[in-house]
Design a protein around this nucleic acid. Structure first.
Lengths: 355, 355
DNA sequence: AAGGCGCCTGTTATCGCTAACATGCCTGCA
DNA sequence: TGCAGGCATGTTAGCGATAACAGGCGCCTT
């Protein structure tokens, strides 16, 4: 039963051995067209005996499609990416597509490389969940022009032929900040952006809006970010940023009474910095995170955060993409904005029995 | 410059437009063979104007290789997987290979599907970092027989033609447990395995060995795991397991004075359960985790844990695989075992000024 | 001056598969 | 009996790229 590794079995080999032509074998293996039951069984038996494996390259080349979808992620180690990919897979699997994932490590250059690889290998479409960059956007634009279906998740890039799903992070950031203000905090810090760069982060813009709307000043010393030039760091290691950012905030003459962290990992880092300084959460400083990762319910105290329907975003992005792939003509851009939801836990709320 | 999306540009199109044959175009684009400079520039110009994109399917079909490697991961949302993939990518990128990642969500069935997809699409080799299963092992075996190069990371499956890199987690588990015993704890619990299943987890076996060697009894009530039948859950969400497991341990008549958690997320969950019960770490209960994720240095108290050289494992696995791919003949199995290192932090050590 | 060697380009023949069309046979119905 | 129509298979012609071989030309060598 074992084959010489240097010569993979082809349809023709099976055909010869089963006494038919390769076309018949193809029909059997793809379950299409009419084939005599006896012939079919014989072909199947021979194929299995020779441990045939179809050649996706040849198949794709001839069919002009590969039933393959690419997903490009900025980093891999975070619950957000995991949920997203799970949503995407749920849809694809059911519809008979295979998913290949590429990681860009938050680098525009690798973003572009991922797009190129997937396009070269003739993925039928690409789902992009990386942050926007000039390089990346240009490449995307040219791929879209060339007819490749693209679906974007939370990427700041509009194109009349690319679908988009996104969470309303501006509103999410706004709500989180408003919550802090409503529990009486007037010095609210933000951890996770560097002011030296143009700030595209919507949840941060929501923070600014909330302050403004409530007549609070934006204090630059209360906004701290990663030390490096590049703030495109993987989500899962941002507790470092949170810890250091919080430490910096605690050293201010007039320290904040609340902080909003760009994500839950950052918030966890902040929590620990506060505890190590011997202060209490939320009494001395209230903390809000973002994303509602599984860990958030298990920090001490449990973390108030903003939840977005991540898996659902993946699902919808995949559905948009498949619709576009399977459509005969060009489709106009589809867009779906998801609501975020503030999840209040004890990091912002003193024991409810008090109230 | 824009093309009709329905008809991708081919080498022949460029050739016609540049007044040469497609062979010459191929030579130019692959930078091989001699081509007149003027011709080369003309071809490149035309190719760029027509925004040519090479067809990896046709190319792969003819060349019988795709310069593509597959990586199969059990889950995506954990720092371990991230570091691993980073190590793999470092090597592949430098050697001109493209990486496609597949996720199995810890299901043997999806494991097999991932292997099949990658093999169908004629990846030049596969790196497997998922846990062993009968189904998966059988499929791997047949792929290896058919000549596909395979490299395994931490997977309990030996094959004379599959390379293996692995961390010595038995020793790691042993060291972690020994450490707890040496700081004077005699009731040491383990969180993260269900005794109803056969236990393949090496770090758990290390725990058992350490107990035995120090003449301590193995107390079944001190070993707790996930409630569900399936303990193959994503690493990143095991803080749930840690929290619930710890809660169970705390409710024992004679509670443990130390616990060893199967990974850092689990340990974090345990830490929080302990804190919520009003007990102190490490005075009342010492805690050790596993993996040394970035978060571990920032819990409160900072977590004692076991570090394994993850990125290095990815690098070596990739190197093994490429060596196998590029070798003319069959290579014997290569294996590399990595040492683990106990990282002692405050979750097991009362303030060092005391000693 | 003839042969040889490098350079540049072209021709041919697949890689493995399948869409589209073609063929032959059998059945049923007018 | 004749023929439409369905079934079961075969034949042909690529999909787009490149390995291998085949010139043609100019220049150097002896």
């Amino acid at each position: 039963m074992k084959r010489n590794p240097t010569k993979p079995v082809t349809l023709a080999d099976i055909a010869a051995s089963a006494g038919v032509t390769s076309m018949t074998v193809s029909r059997v293996l793809n379950q299409q067209g009419n084939v005599n039951v006896a012939t079919r069984d014989r072909v199947l038996r021979v194929a299995s005996e020779m441990s045939y494996r179809r050649n996706g390259l040849a198949r794709g080349l001839k069919r002009q499609r590969t039933d393959t979808i690419g997903l490009v992620l900025g980093d891999i180690a975070n619950p957000f990416a995991a949920e997203l990919s799970r949503g995407v897979r749920e849809v694809l699997e059911q519809r008979g597509y295979t998913l290949f994932i590429c990681i860009s490590e938050h680098s525009p250059k690798e973003d572009v490389e991922a797009f190129d690889s997937l396009a070269d290998h003739r993925a039928d479409g690409i789902i992009v969940a990386t942050r926007a960059s000039r390089l990346g956007n240009e490449k995307l634009e040219s791929l879209i022009e060339s007819g490749l279906p693209i679906s974007l998740i939370g990427r700041d890039f509009l194109h009349p032929q690319a679908d988009l799903v996104i969470a309303d992070n501006l509103k999410g950031g706004y709500e989180a900040t408003k919550h802090l203000i409503q529990i009486g905090r007037r010095r609210v810090g933000f951890i996770g952006v560097s002011l030296t760069k143009s700030i595209a982060l919507r949840r941060f813009r929501g923070y600014l809006e909330a302050l403004e709307e409530h007549g609070l000043p934006v204090a630059e010393e209360l906004i701290v970010g990663p030390r490096g030039v590049n703030d495109q760091i993987p989500g899962y290691s941002t507790e470092e940023v949170g810890y250091e950012g919080m430490t910096k905030l605690l050293s201010l003459k007039e320290r904040p009474t609340a902080v909003f962290a760009r994500n839950d990992f950052t918030a966890v880092g902040a929590l620990n910095a506060i505890k190590q300084a011997g202060l209490r959460v939320p009494e001395d400083i209230a903390v809000v995170g973002y994303d509602d990762i599984p860990l958030a319910a298990h920090t001490s105290p449990p973390l108030t955060t903003v939840r977005q329907p991540t898996r659902e975003q993946g699902r919808v992005a995949a559905e948009f993409l498949l619709r576009r792939i399977e459509a005969a003509e060009h489709l106009p851009r589809a867009e779906r904005v998801f609501r975020c939801q503030l999840v209040v836990r004890e990091s912002t709320e003193v024991n409810s029995s008090l109230s």
